[in-house]
């Protein structure tokens, strides 16, 4: 059974249709990349998967582990293993990163029938995970994302991901705004979590991330539709040619006759 199955997904926000029939199948162990120009609906797709209320699904369905994902509350989805690394992570003043993560992990563990982790065990566990993303220990005790630099925020998202051990991780432009070193750290984090029962949906604007996280499938999303899917070569092609050649329906725009 596939892990995620999106069928003919239409979604809108404030009366405006953004997703206009998206189909996508992701199997366990796979890494899918979604590329596309700004405003094409990439974040919208991610937010719909995570369950953000502002986005109204008007048509189509999403099956996650064979179940109707759209029926599930956002926290339920998270507990069932969906993780989204936000394009713009929010700040939560006064709530320390470590406290937040412990609450999150324990909510997830309880849901999965596991015992809650106590503070000591959690600290040991978390320190291990921090190494993966080369997080500064100081960021553990600072309020969630407050005063973090852009790069720190993105790295913090990957850190959260590694702590929460998701089944399906959606990364929304986690690479944007990162220098090459930070990019590598993020990629290392993802690669270290690669496993045959975990899948990734990596949303990116640039091909360069895909040098480090090698996808199994690349999709191109334009104007709310996946207009092309292919292997990792597709990313290079996009790098060379941009998106314009895909924006018009196949065959259109070519001079006919004359």
């Amino acid at each position: 059974m596939s892990l995620l199955e999106i069928k003919n997904l239409h979604a809108r926000v404030e009366e405006q249709e953004i997703l206009k029939g998206v189909d996508l199948i992701i199997n366990p162990g796979e890494i899918h990349a979604i590329m596309g120009p700004n405003g094409s609906g990439k974040s919208t797709l991610a937010q719909v998967l995570a369950g953000k209320e502002d986005y109204e699904v008007t048509e189509g369905e999403i099956l996650y582990k064979g179940e109707d994902l759209l029926e599930m509350a956002p926290e339920e989805r998270a507990r069932e293993g969906i993780f989204m690394a936000f394009q713009y992570p929010v700040e939560i003043p006064g709530v320390s990163n470590v406290y937040f993560l412990k609450a999150a992990l324990n909510a997830i563990r309880t849901h999965r029938g596991l015992e809650e982790m106590d503070a000591m065990d959690f600290l040991v566990y978390v320190r291990e995970k921090m190494k993966v993303v080369k997080m500064d220990e100081a960021l553990l005790n600072r309020p969630v994302n407050e005063g973090f630099s852009g790069g720190e925020k993105k790295r913090n998202e990957i850190f959260h991901m590694s702590v929460l051990d998701p089944v399906l991780a959606v990364l929304d432009e986690t690479d944007s705004g990162l220098d090459i070193d930070a990019l590598k750290i993020v990629a290392d984090g993802v690669n270290s979590l690669r496993s045959e029962d975990r899948a990734f949906l990596v949303i990116t604007h640039y091909q360069r991330l895909l040098n480090y996280i090698v996808p199994d499938v690349v999709h191109v999303l334009i104007d709310g539709r996946i207009v092309r899917s292919g292997g990792k070569e597709l990313a290079f092609e996009l790098e060379d040619k941009g998106y314009a050649w895909l924006e018009e329906p196949l065959g259109a725009g070519e001079p006919v006759g004359a």
């Binding site: 209320e53 926290e75 936000f86 929010v90 003043p93 709530v95 937040f100």
Partner: peptide, 25 residues
């Protein structure tokens, strides 16, 4: 903020109390 917490598995009630507690820290 609440949605961010939800997305990490924390339900809304806990999220609100966490955010308010942070506000009062």
């Amino acid at each position: 903020q609440v949605f961010y917490c939800n997305q990490r598995g924390i339900d809304t009630e806990d999220a609100v109390s966490m955010i308010v507690n942070g506000f009062c820290k």
